[in-house]
Amino acid sequence: MMLRINNNKQRNAQFLWGWLFILPTMIGLIILNIIPIFRTIFQSFFKTGDFGKGNIFIGLQNYSKLFEDTEVWQSLWNTIKYVIVEVPVSIMIALIIAVLLNQKIKGKSIFRTIFFLPMIAAPAAIAMVWRWLYNSQFGLLNNVFNLDVAWISDPSIAIYSIAVIGIWSVVGYNIVLFLAGLQEIPRDYYEAARIDGASGINQFFHITIPLLSPSIFFVSVTRMIAAFQVFDLIYMVMTDTNPAIEKTQSLVYLFYQYSFTYGNKGYGATIAVLLLVVIMMITGIQIYAQKKWVHYS
């Protein structure tokens, strides 16, 4: 009897402490994330006045405008193009480098540091440096390779130039996650494979990738979400007189324009809701598709 009371007490205490520990995060999430999500959805039904005063309820007008707005769909297409380039390429490069860095090579930790460095630099600083590299008149790229390419003002390639910056800055982060995943793969598998005569490439495709698939899945989902929200790179690299801006602006960039430059927060909120729906849909598809290829041990 005594034992059970003690047990109950202990369980209650555990329960209490458990909640106490996650409470700060919960409060933070609710105040900073959950409430604003619903306020944004709420705001998308209004024609907002200056400085948050005098909002007028207009029902679905913002949404009907959104569906006819070619600028929005062009921006969505730009964003998708960015995601399609940035996410797979950054994962592939990171995967290869992570596997190489996991070998016994000299100066391993130096390489790891070097690859992670872009992650520490401020995105604004990165964008400024790349902007100069890309500059068609004075830029390093054109001068060293003797080219005459308008990297960031030619509408047909500007978005890819920006995706390259994105890949460059995110590869280090992916590498670290993959390295952590690689540590978890038991050495025995590789030894067994070697005895059976499997080549390095075969080992990579038949041992490393399947066993690393949970990490790859995690990285691809989080990177996809982050890539859909690309803003700072475009904001820093492009100017509004740039001839390529229509073909490069992302949904978040457009949202920023409407909310802060034009002061039309209601329509800005509508664009944000569209982005939310797109991200949820794609994440949902990814989670469904993981059954086919992700192996949890």
């Binding site: 994330n33 604003p36 999500i37 705001q43 909310s259 909120a269 939310l276």
Partner: peptide, 8 residues
């Protein structure tokens, strides 16, 4: 997504 909305 919430972080973004937060800014609006």
């Amino acid at each position: 997504a919430g972080c973004k909305n937060e800014t609006i």
